[in-house]
Computed example of a mutant assay.
Amino acid sequence: MASFSERVSSTISNSLVGLAVSMSWEVGIFQALLDTEVPLTSHQVAQAKGLKERYVRELLGCMSVAEFVRIVEGEDGTFLYTLEEEAKKALQSRLAALLTFPAVLSSTYSSVKECVFQHGPAGHSYSDRVQAFFDNFLEYDAPLLTSAFLENVPNLQTKLEQGIDVIEYGAGQGQLSATLASKFPNSHFVASEVVSSLVDKSRTRWDHISNLSFSLDDACSLQERPGHEFDWVFCNNVIHDLPDPVAALQGIKRVLKKPEGVFTFLDHAFSGSPLKEKGNLDVARYYATGTFLCIPESYQREESLALGPCWGKQTSVGMLQNAGYLVEVVTLDKARALFICHHSKET
């Protein structure tokens, strides 16, 4: 194993390169190389995107040394830059939505630093930039998440085709609900959020979808809705972000039709133990994400549980069972799982 100093040095180097990757994507440097079939100089990249050449040259220096961009020297000594075909394919996939993530996290640094101190605020809400990142990522991810629901929840597709009532809590700007509503016009979908500005944005953006409506709700204080229960309730990366997930799970059960209603949510299902995950940098990344995004979002009052994304599979299953659900967990990949929940016979 590398020494502590070597590991710290490598991590800092990767962090700095990550910021340069975010910048190169956001200002259009990668796009300029995607849009051409021939090698470009730094001057040509700058001209194509209306940028200052000196900054472009420095960023391309970073990208080429890190081997994200191919560099060759022309006959006149000028450096020429291109993208490998594999890189072009990757930049046109869902990976593209992740390229701005280092910059998004860095934008929260000062606010989170204040929260860490005993005298500081407990937490803070997601900024517009964070919400925009989530929405952009869902543009790529929504088809995959839709497939995860349809392939793993028994009879869900048939019911949606026939027509059922559905609500998504923590819908953000409504991308996932809109995708499903467009696919299943016989069902009625509600995109619910606790942030009024997000509800307004969703309504403006998706108002053309006739079977999609919008609601302002606090998922942590849901009350019974006699005659207006839902056949399917779903969430995506929401439960661990809530200040009172126990109350939310109990409230969702109140609005879920008995006995046939199903509640499904996508979330992380790690071990919940940093000792068991020692050396797993993928999990370390989620602890870092929790620090800068999930904990501040959920820890907005002193009594908040502030679970974070590494809350652990056993913790989540235990909470669900205590709330009166029968639970099945389907592992989707090394980071995500689908929790399929029904009313228990006792409830």
Rank of each mutant, 00 (worst) to 15 (best):
D165V: 05
V69E: 02
G18T: 12
F68M: 14
V56L: 04
L156A: 01
F263H: 13
V190N: 02
Q118V: 12
A306S: 10
E6G: 12
V327G: 02
S125C: 08
C62R: 09
S298H: 04
D165W: 04
A103Q: 04
R301K: 09
I340V: 06
F149C: 01
V153E: 01
A269H: 08
L242W: 09
D282Q: 15
G251F: 13
Q157P: 08
D282C: 14
T82I: 08
F214Q: 09
L19V: 11
D231N: 15
A247Y: 07
E346T: 10
T204D: 13
D76E: 00
C341W: 05
T204A: 14
L138M: 12
H119T: 12
S196H: 08
L16W: 03
G50Q: 03
A335C: 07
I239L: 12
Q92P: 01
V246K: 12
S210N: 15
E168Q: 04
V153Y: 00
A90I: 07
A191M: 11
S13H: 13
E139M: 13
D128N: 06
S13W: 08
T11D: 14
R54W: 14
T331V: 12
R94I: 15
T315M: 03
V17N: 10
A171Y: 05
E139K: 12
S215T: 11
E168H: 02
V317T: 05
L212A: 14
C310H: 00
R129A: 08
C294H: 00
T291H: 03
L105Q: 06
G261P: 07
Q157Y: 05
E67H: 01
A181D: 06
L160A: 04
A191G: 12
E26D: 11
I239N: 05
T108N: 04
Q321G: 09
P296V: 08
A171W: 06
V330P: 01
L293K: 00
L40E: 01
S197I: 07
T291V: 04
A122V: 03
V17P: 10
L83V: 11
C115S: 05
S304W: 06
M23P: 01
G120R: 03
S182V: 03
L59Y: 12
S215A: 14
L91T: 03
F30E: 04
L198H: 10
F339K: 00
S106A: 13
L275I: 13
A142R: 13
S3L: 11
L145H: 03
A269K: 03
M23F: 11
V27T: 09
Q118K: 11
S344L: 05
P121W: 01
E139Q: 13
K258H: 03
Y169P: 00
N155W: 02
K257C: 07
V166G: 06
E37T: 15
L34R: 08
T264W: 05
S147Y: 07
V194E: 09
M23I: 15
A219H: 07
K113D: 09
G174H: 07
T158G: 00
G120N: 04
S182T: 07
N322K: 13
K258Q: 04
R254H: 12
A288I: 15
E58C: 06
V190A: 05
I29H: 07
V262D: 00
V330F: 01
E73L: 07
S215N: 14
F339E: 00
K258V: 07
E346Y: 09
H188S: 13
V69K: 06
T291I: 02
C220N: 13
